[in-house]
């Protein structure tokens, strides 16, 4: 059997475009997911039973669903709700944002709970409101504690973006498959895809480990 890794060089620009889309989707979904997750976590910890229940139901619901099913849901729903096709990217972005928020909110909730109660009490005692206590005292410390875990979840999210393959949105995985099938080079292309994902995710997790070491000190 003859390998031909030249096919990778010939299609590099096309593959790079796919990789750019994977990164863009990861960044936007992580940003949107974290914002939504902070709201969910604050609802959960608010002490209002109704808010806490809504938040818990949201989180448990999304955590019991496979991501692929969520992607299918929004590819079907979004055009129906808007009344016209909006392109796969926005459907995928909404699906990933809502799905990841469920996972991020559990991390953020743990992060908020890791800040000692004395800090909150001190905030109130100095006359800060709830919003100010959260904004200036609790959340900055919580985010500092949970940065490594949030980044790890970001790496997971980056791997998960490969699933947009199921709706043929042209991310890195789909681009790889298109080249693989057109050129009849499945072996080379899938090994290449594995190598690219591995290098990115492994360097990411090494960086997270270094951060953890720094924070632990």
């Amino acid at each position: 059997m003859a390998f031909d890794f030249g096919v990778i060089f010939d299609s590099l620009p096309f593959l790079a475009e796919g990789l750019a889309l994977s990164f863009l989707l990861t960044l936007l979904a992580a940003a949107g997911g974290i914002v939504l997750a902070v709201i969910l976590a604050l609802m959960r910890l608010s002490g209002y039973t109704a808010l806490a229940l809504i938040s818990a139901a949201y989180v448990n619901f999304f955590r019991s669903m496979p991501l692929i099913l969520v992607i299918f849901w929004f590819f079907f729903l979004v055009p129906l709700l808007i009344g016209r096709p909006v392109g796969g990217f926005y459907s995928a972005l909404i699906a990933f944002t809502l799905f990841e928020a469920a996972y991020y909110s559990e991390i953020i909730r743990a992060g908020i709970q890791s800040v000692s109660r004395g800090q909150v009490a001190a905030g109130y005692a100095t006359g800060l409101t709830y919003g100010q206590t959260m904004r200036f005292i609790v959340l900055p410390q919580a985010f500092r504690n949970m940065t490594p875990v949030l980044l790890t979840q970001g790496i997971v999210l980056f791997q998960d973006t490969s699933l947009v393959f199921v709706v043929a949105l042209r991310d890195f995985m789909t681009a790889t498959t298109i080249v693989a099938r057109n050129e009849g080079r499945l072996i080379e292309m899938y090994l290449f895809a594995a190598a690219v994902y591995f290098v990115i995710c492994f360097s990411g997790s090494l960086y997270v480990r270094r951060l953890q070491g720094k924070f632990a000190r």
Binding site: Q159, S162, F198
Partner: peptide, 23 residues
């Protein structure tokens, strides 16, 4: 552990399905 955790499951499935039988 590092190898299998840092490659997306989808890529791994394709490698088992399309690549491994050839190798």
């Amino acid at each position: 552990v590092e190898l299998l955790r840092n490659v997306p499951l989808l890529v791994q499935l394709f490698i088992w399905y399309f690549v491994v039988p050839e190798l």
